[in-house]
Design a protein around this nucleic acid. Structure first.
Lengths: 245, 245
DNA sequence: CGACGGTTTGACAATCATCAAATACAGTGG
DNA sequence: CCACTGTATTTGATGATTGTCAAACCGTCG
């Protein structure tokens, strides 16, 4: 049963399963879809702004983003897409992509199974809905970061958010996780320049808040960082203790 | 048939009807819901961050926002809510508000009818879905504004977006619309200070791009402004020429 | 008239961007 | 194994956009 293409269970599937209890049928639909996976190299376009969306996708592994380019070359990454995130999932007819989706690392994606069939396919629709709500919550947080936080806070807050999101997909531990992004990409995500990212990261290292080795970031004192950067975990449903506290 | 509580058709209903073709039944459900309207004064809270959402609402008239407060008093308005916008509409169980929703002017809201009954209730679900997609599109744009535009561009881009959104609800004309917000609220929306908003608005007046009298803003040259501020209208569906060009 | 919220103005400070170059690092080919 | 190339990180010097603080002004309302 092990799939040659990937590890036993791609992180993306783990995340969806963690969002809502799935029936065996739903789980099977996901596994089946994941078997039809497609690999895209870093910098590849998963979705083109303004173009009609053929089918929604699940990001099984790797990092991607929704990006915008201004006329003069400035770029803003509106959100990062991590394993388990849905790409181009809309509930209306003939949806058009409202952003370009770009692979930041090599990524693996598959088509997202439609939950409509067979009485909701057991919680799949619920998982999608929770994923959508989380997506929105993180967009709102990103707006707050960009609008009202300084560079130091932005980075700190953002790192804690990454930890939280990656944890859902079973990636990383309580105080460290992979960081495959260049400082330039971080800059485009946080609305800063790569030079300023670099200097601020150095400061955070001096302050013994973070450490970075071999593409793995370590948060030395997440609690203190959370206070400094005004971070609170996202929570979108009161049902069970499902998403996380 | 005219409703004592409101004008014949509240702008919020017009917008939803403009998003997707509604069957008479759907239309009737909306009109019925609108009759149970509730008025909230400026500064009133429509939704409290972290609290469970009882029922989704439609903003029938007036302006509101989704706001965040940082520990030290800084505030960020993540998005404005205009007539026809949906408040707290999620598709999962026991949703929790991920932001505070605050009335910026006196607003009128009603409960949003559930589209699930009776075979989708004729396009109501479609209208909701398109509204959700537009909401997301505008969040992404706001992120781009905050992350990569200077004060002048932010304001210009934002004004054009307001014009576009208000037009859907039948509010304003091709080059002017009401502006009930204080410069302080504009500042919290655009990630600036009210002082800087004030100075930048003055500059835009000198440049003959905008004029402001009695709470009505006039865009003297929307095309030039669109070029300066890198603005492109939002489009979320390829179906018909529905939302707008 | 006085109080109040909002706008406007001025002087100054600070964060962050810009420009340019040096350094480190990884992969490639000789 | 070592130059070689390209990308990413780091550093320095300088300037611009925007924030901060404080006060004046203005219209409205009681």
């Amino acid at each position: 049963m092990t799939n040659a293409n990937q590890q036993a269970v791609p992180p993306g599937i783990s995340r969806l399963a963690a969002l809502a209890p799935l029936t065996p049928a739903a789980r099977q639909a996901l596994d089946l879809a994941a078997r039809q996976a497609r690999t895209v190299k870093a910098r590849g376009e998963l979705q083109v702004e303004g173009r009609e969306i053929r089918a929604p996708m699940i990001l099984l592994s790797g990092w991607a983003c929704r990006a915008f380019n201004l006329a003069d070359g400035r770029r803003q990454i509106a959100s990062l897409l991590l394993p388990g995130d849905l790409i181009g999932m809309y509930n209306h007819e003939a949806p058009i992509a409202n952003a370009s989706v770009i692979a930041l690392t090599e990524v693996v994606v598959c088509e997202a199974p439609q939950p409509r069939e067979a009485a909701d396919l057991g919680g799949l629709a619920e998982a999608y809905a929770i994923s959508a709500a989380l997506d929105q919550a993180y967009l709102l947080r990103n707006i707050t970061r960009l609008g009202r936080m300084d560079a130091y806070e932005r980075i700190g807050n953002w790192l804690l958010e990454l930890r939280e999101r990656l944890a859902l997909a079973g990636i990383g531990s309580s105080n460290q996780f992979p960081m495959p992004l260049t400082q330039e990409v971080m800059a485009d995500t946080l609305g800063l320049t790569s030079v300023h990212i670099n200097r601020t990261l150095q400061q955070m290292r001096k302050d013994n808040l973070i450490a970075l080795q071999n593409g793995v970031i370590t948060l030395a004192d997440p609690a203190r960082l959370a206070t400094l950067a005004d971070h609170h975990p996202a929570c979108v449903t009161a049902a069970g203790s499902r998403p996380e506290g």
